[in-house]
Amino acid sequence: MTYSISNIARSKGDPKVLHSGPSSLGAADRMARALGWFSIGLGVTELIAARRITRALGMEGKEALVRAYGIRELGHGIVSLSSDKHLGLWSRVAGDGLDIATLMTAMRHDNPKRDNVGIALAAVLGVTLLDIIGAQGATARHSRPRGRPSSYRGRTGFPQGVQAARGAAKDFKVPPDMRAAPALAAVSDRAPQERARPH
């Protein structure tokens, strides 16, 4: 479907996709993407339905806090959807900790919505597990492994050696349109009076 739309921008002779093959996106990347969009969705919900959320959890009066958490979730989402996804997912794990701590304060015996808080807490714990799995997966997939990198000390690029290469292209004439301004072009070949010409 996407191709048939984007094919409008192509000319007749341009190749068109027939079958799709394996992707550069791994399972960890797809999970990060899903959790990133989940963050965005949750963040928007917390921003626009803060009152309903606090009422459902017996946390009336904490609307500003829920909205602040909504903004935080949007931040997690944006970073999780970026190429620095591992940072976004680890920030989600930290955010989960904050959510759990906040929900724990509502687990009071005098809270008539204690059951709802329990359900919310279970959900956050489940998501935390997913976040940890996702963060570990993304970190493992995209980190440079520790250890000694390959040595490229022998790769000069100069078959006759570096010393022979120094200035070997001095015969090259820099085109006039690529010459540097006179202030830093060679001055040694100019007459002294030209070098010190007064304005």
Partner: peptide, 14 residues
């Protein structure tokens, strides 16, 4: 971040 090795139609002289 989604590059795939796909089967596509051959290009043609235009």
């Amino acid at each position: 971040e989604d590059i795939r090795c796909d089967t596509v139609t051959d290009p043609e002289l235009e």
